[in-house]
């Protein structure tokens, strides 16, 4: 419009530019802080030395540790990855199904003990998860599942129904008129669930699947208590932790790094692709990506 306005604009722009430069500097410093440990981990995984080093850059590089992961009989990393994947995938399927079933029932069906279930779910969720793992171990013994991978699947997914809150919150937002219309058309509640509600629930299904997959993928507590000395049934979390044992660290630290890098890659990619769903889940769909 007018010249004065233009000069004001340039003054404003300059100020904004200055602020932006500061923001860039802050962000860069932060990124360095955040990314350095990851870089260090990757660098160490190629270090020729075996033990913990205090230096940031290795003096020489090798690919041996990645090979050692799949050749070392004492630390059967390949087997662990397979175990971890199987446990995580199976738990993910069962847990997701359970969570959807329970949250649908609690959200959209009306029955007598619904309120009681809602409250009971809240109360049970407040017990520390691993408080009763000693007891759970004994129960697995009864079922002949002691130190079995399937025991882990059960542990991770049996209580999944308790995690109904987020998905229930989602189902609550779907208009009830949809159900009513379907009912008038003669659909049973079973049909409504599978054919109407679930197809609408892609974001929450992805979110649930994502969290129920990454949980078992990285769990240490239950594996460490359940698998004890059965190395061939360990998962990666426990196996990598054992590589840093007092007795092993000086020969296996770099192998640990290699293993950690390998395990981190798929899960990081998965998370980056799926982050939108994660955010939607946590914020109850308040974000429309």
């Amino acid at each position: 419009m007018t010249n004065t306005n233009d000069s004001m604009k340039t003054g404003y722009a300059q100020k904004r530019k200055a602020i932006n430069t500061i923001v860039y500097i802050i962000l860069s410093v932060m990124v360095v802080i955040w990314i350095v440990p990851i870089i260090w981990l990757i660098l160490q995984s190629f270090n020729t030395e075996m033990g913990v080093t205090t230096k940031f850059f290795p003096s020489s590089f090798t690919f041996d540790h990645y090979i050692a992961l799949f050749t070392d009989e004492q630390y059967p990393y390949g087997k662990w990855i397979l175990n971890t994947f199987m446990v995580a995938a199976l738990s993910c399927v069962i847990s997701t199904l359970f969570i959807l079933m329970v949250s649908y029932a609690l959200s959209r069906l009306r029955f007598k003990v619904r309120k009681t279930f809602l409250n009971l779910g809240l109360i049970l969720g407040m017990f520390p998860g691993f408080m009763s793992m000693a007891a759970t171990y004994n129960i697995m013994d009864i079922f002949g599942l002691k130190q079995q991978l399937f025991a882990l699947v059960i542990v991770y997914s049996a209580g999944a129904g308790l995690g109904y809150q987020v998905a229930k919150g989602f189902f609550d937002t779907i208009p009830r008129s949809l159900d009513e219309a379907a009912k008038i058309d003669g659909a049973t509640r079973n049909q409504i669930f599978w054919q109407i509600i679930l197809p609408l629930s892609k974001p929450i299904i992805v979110y649930t699947a994502l969290t129920t997959f990454t949980g078992p993928w990285a769990d240490y507590i239950f594996v460490s208590y359940f698998m004890k000395d059965n190395e061939s049934n360990w998962t990666v979390a426990l196996g990598l932790y054992k590589m840093l044992d007092k007795e092993a660290i000086s020969t296996h630290f770099t192998t640990f790094c290699a293993g950690a890098v390998l395990i981190a890659i798929p899960i990081t990619i998965l998370f980056i692709i799926m982050q939108r769903f994660y955010v939607e889940g946590v914020t109850g769909g308040a974000v429309k990506g």
Partner: peptide
């Protein structure tokens, strides 16, 4: 890191 690794690293460097 535990005494074993510590001693090993200490003598090495």
């Amino acid at each position: 890191m535990g005494d074993n690794a510590y001693v090993k690293a200490g003598f090495e460097d």
